[in-house]
Design a binder for these strands. Sequence first.
RNA 1: GCGCUCGUAGCUCAACGGAUAGAGCAUUUGACUUCGGAUCAAAGGGUUGGGGGUUCAAGUCCCUCCGAGCGCGCCA
Length: 579
Amino acid sequence: MADPVAHVEKRVAAAFAEVGGDKAIGVDTAVRQSDRADAQIDGCLALAKAMGLAPRDVATRVLAAVDLHDICSAAEVAGPGFINLTFHHEFLARELVTVAASARLGVRKAKHARKVVIDYSAPNVAKEMHVGHLRSTVIGDALARMLMFVGHDVTRENHVGDWGTPFGMLIEHLVDLGETQAANELSVGDLDSFYRGARKKFDDSEAFQARARSRVVKLQGGDGETLRLWRILVAESTTYFQTIYRTLGVLLETTDVMGESAYNDLLPQVVQRLSDAKMLVVSDGAEVVFPSGFTNRENQPLPLIIRKSDGGYNYATSDLACVIDRVERLRADLLIYVVGAPQAQHLEMVAAVAAQVGWLKSPCEMVHVAFGNVLGADKKMLKSRSGDAVKLDALLIEAVERAANAVTEKNPELSSQTKDEVARFVGLGSVKYADLSTDRVKDYIFDWERMLSFDGNTAPYLQYAHARICSIFRRANVEREAAKDFSPKISHAAERALALRLLQFDSAVWDTIDKYSPHRLCAYLYELATSFSSFYERCPVLKATDQDERNSRLMLCDLTARTLQTGLDLLGIDAPEQM
RNA sequence: GCGCUCGUAGCUCAACGGAUAGAGCAUUUGACUUCGGAUCAAAGGGUUGGGGGUUCAAGUCCCUCCGAGCGCGCCA
């Protein structure tokens, strides 16, 4: 419980109960950050309403009933009935010591560890990754890191598209090219030309179409030779995905791949169990379920198609199989889907059916972490000059190049090896941070200049703040390790602002997790970095007037650097020591 | 037609139902023989798309209209 606000909250709740009795039930006792004081208590207005009394009188009574002497130096009724709180310097210093001594920087562990399955990235086999995969991959990875950090048991699952009718034509194209040649083409990452080649033949040749169709039948029938060829496609693609993931610095491994094909064995079971539950209905020749509350354009019940009229399964079946697998085999109680916003209705329907049939029972829940599109400067879907989707590897290469140019310009003294590393951290960090720092549900405009800027809410600004602190320690003649044990003394206003900010890390992380919204952590880190910059400007560290002050400030520097580094790491971003 | 999401400063974005809606960019103005100026400080800039309602309190919740995007039966 690092955040001072959390300390106060418990006592406030008790005071509300004492003052309001039954009337206090249900009244929000939250203590919030405030721009008029260190924190404010708002609930007196609501309590006053419930009690039929004047808000300021109630606030006065609450103030009398709560003992905050060891935490606050001032607590006063303000405005229509708020209570403004100012924390003791000594209290802040004590809390800083606690936080600095903790490897987790005061971030609380989850009260109950959950078994979480997080589904993200999900590229398609034999297709190149493009900007469309960026958000799922980056957001999902950040959330996975945070959930693990607070102690949940997290399983990452990469639900790659490795099954379905396109594989008939892809396999036949593979046969035409010859395995060696095809594997070559795929392994160098030129998946698009492979896919286009197959597509073109399929569109142009009826004979090829026939081959493709019969190949699909063989694939679904488990034909050994066909499966062998299919595995070549999957293996080469997986290798390619890993090169992107390694470049991007995300946690996904080949062992996290759980493609659609992994659920094939469960598909008949999905049908059987829905049938046993009397939920399956035949409609227009297809076997479907009608979850309540969903209608189509004619206002008729909207079906979730479990089995097509041709006997095949589709993605709803496979998604339901996923739920069974995750809940019954993995024993997960939180299923997170980092999937684009357009799939909201589909996932709602899957969740509705899974709940109705009893696979998804409280406290087990399914959460759709939806996100918007990446747009170009024209506010349309980001496209390359040729009009195609922008390839992810090209995008990442450009990011690093642009960062390298900036680093070369700003800091020519860096060795070329260091420069390369810094360019990678800054370039990739910029792309990821730009994606993570805005509300995920909205579209955002991809803008190189802005994301690589050293001013504003960007990765380079945060990384720079971190690098400056590292620079201080290189000159300080003090071991970094020792700094966390120095005792902090809060006297200057900028020190105070920084201290308060540092203590809010815990809340920031939890707020981010509760809403599955990484931009909240970004906003916190940006505020921390600005608080630090302000402190840095006004409070000399190495040139401090006396040893105690110097040590105190070194302590603040160290804690700031660790918080920035940890926070960026939770976002999947590296913080270089110099740049 | 029905449904979902979005609409906040010139631009890009914030704001658990809490007081005077905040940042950055851009613009204007200050601060450097710098503990890394890739910085800091300050100013101007708003009818939160329009209109109703709920509430002690609404950018936030409800209704309605306008505008944008996306879904709406056998692709995933």
